[in-house]
Structures are given as structure tokens and as C-alpha cells.
Write a protein that binds this DNA or RNA. Structure first.
Lengths: 147, 147
DNA sequence: ACATTAGTTAAAGTCGACTTTAACTCATAG
DNA sequence: CTATGAGTTAAAGTCGACTTTAACTAATGT
């Protein structure tokens, strides 16, 4: 059996960790106050974070990126702290998040289409492909993007 | 030459228009105050909106959906009011918006991947495909989604 | 030793995007 | 003709997610 090699893990103080994660120091403290992350303390009382904390933060930021609010993240973290008994709850929460996200995603794609059409229309005007008095509504109707 | 048939266009009062656009009355007044929309007034002084206003609002909401702030929308509207001389500015603005949006879109897709992986992992735990003590980091590493 | 730079806390402030309130007037069905 | 439901305004309030401030202590380079 392999023996545990006691490689002391790297300790990041809040400034370095902020740079590493792309968050600000105050934001890290704010997340801590909200219970989203629990940094450790050195003997002198200063916070330190590890690479594991960085992975955790990254994951949280991805969840946040999918539209979860801080409150939802707190709920998730609270359930996680309760252990395996809450796994189905967490699974359900994440599935709900995914549902909302997919919905939002479709709307984003539609908005992207409209934005592209508008850009094409302006480009056409600038390049002189579209007559000076053709409105965007007409132009849109000339494409087949129904609402 | 065809004569103009004076079909009186439908007038929506703010309540009906709010329902139509999915915005609230106060939000419509707020957008008006910010100069994003200019409803008309009946003789009695009440606002009314037309179908053209509805199209305009929809378009604005699509722009907003791509990440434009109210301030950016105000800038866009201001340039629009200045006429054709600002077309290249507007085109440039929309292209910038698109650039940012595409960037954001990629991040969203990555977050979606992570979310899906996490859901699969939980599902595996619930279904017993994943051993009780396999962490998510290990599981992630077992997939080939590099950061 | 001492000047910088980084970290500590709690509390207050900011910002964007609305929402709510207050004190009105207008519209309309019975 | 009056009760009830929209609409009017300006101003204040809310909410989420931070950010800034103040008043301090710890760490570090010269």
C-alpha cells in the first residue's frame, strides 16, 4: 500500500486567490459570509485557500453562469453540507436550473438571429445593397424568420 | 396609383399594451422616461401605443436580451434619432454587442457542459452507477472535458 | 525600524433595473 | 351619478450582487 506523502498543499492568501479565481477580495469575503466557500485560517488568523477551494469556486461560478442566484447556490451548498440524504434534492434543483437555462438559451438564440439580421440590414444600407427607404420590418419580412 | 385607405390603426392603452408586450405599466413608463419608446397621446391626455410601437419594443427587448444595458439602448436610440448620419456608429455598436454576446455564449455553453456533467454524476450516484466515494473531480477527469 | 503592502472586520454605499407609493384624474357600467 | 377600475405624475423604495469605507492589524522589503 502506498504511504501518504505529506506534500504540504499550496496555501493562497486572499489576494493571490482573488487573482487566481478572477474574483475580488471583497467578493470572496462576501461569498464566505453567504456560506458559499469556507476558507481556512493560518495560526496568525489570516485566511488561506487551496486548489480544492479554487475548483469549488470555479464550479460555483459555472452554476452561477447558468442563471442560479446566490440564494439558490446557498440552498445547494446547505443541502450538500447535509450529506447524501439530500442528493435527490440537489439533483432536482440542478435539473430545474437546466430546464430554465435551456429555455433562456433558446431565447438567446432568437435574439442573436434578430441582432444578426439587424447588422446585415445596416451593412446593406452602408454598402448600398438596401435602398435608403426600405425599413427593417420589410427587410425582416423578406427573410423567413418568423416570430 | 393606390389611394391611402385611412384604416384607423389600433390604439392600445398602457394596460393592454403591457399585456401585449409582457412588460408592466410602470416599466413602460420607465422606458419612456429613459427615451426608449415614445407613445402617443389621445386628446384626453392618455397614452396610447400602436402595433408599430409593439414591434419596436420587441426589437429593443431582443437587443436587451443580447446583453445591452439600458444605457446602451439609450445611446442606440439617440443615434437613431439623429438620422442616417449615425448609421455606421449604430452598426459598430451592434457589432460590438455581438462580439460580447458570442463570447458570453461560449462561456454559457461551457457552463452547460459542467452542469450536465454534474447532473449525470448525481444521477449515477442515485442509480448506483457511480461508487459512493468517487468525487466529482475524479468523475470530471474521467470525461474528456478539459478546462 | 519603519514604510509599504496586504489582510481583518462591520457597516454603509452603489448600481442597474425596475417597483411601489401617494395623491391625484379619467373612464365606464349600473 | 356614483362606485370601481384604469391612467397620470413625481418621488421614494427594493433587490441582487457586489463595492467602498473606516479603523484597524499583520507581513515584508530595505
Amino acid at each position: 500500500m502506498a504511504t501518504k506523502t505529506a506534500v504540504t498543499e499550496k496555501r493562497y492568501r486572499i489576494g493571490e486567490f482573488a487573482t487566481k479565481t478572477g474574483l475580488s477580495g471583497p467578493t470572496l469575503r462576501y461569498y464566505e459570509k453567504e456560506g458559499l466557500v469556507k476558507p481556512h485560517r493560518s495560526d496568525n488568523g489570516l485566511r488561506y485557500y487551496t486548489d480544492a477551494d479554487a475548483s469549488w469556486i470555479k464550479f460555483l461560478l459555472h452554476l452561477k453562469g447558468t442563471g442560479m442566484t446566490i440564494e439558490q447556490l446557498k440552498q445547494y451548498v446547505a443541502w450538500r453540507a447535509e450529506g447524501d440524504a439530500t442528493i435527490t434534492k440537489r439533483l432536482q434543483l440542478l435539473k430545474n436550473v437546466r430546464r430554465g437555462f435551456l429555455q433562456e438559451f433558446e431565447e438567446l438564440q432568437h435574439s442573436m438571429t434578430i441582432l444578426n439580421d439587424k447588422i446585415d440590414w445596416y451593412q446593406g444600407k452602408v454598402d448600398g445593397h438596401i435602398s435608403d427607404n426600405e425599413g427593417f420590418a420589410n427587410y425582416l419580412a423578406s427573410l423567413n424568420h418568423e416570430e
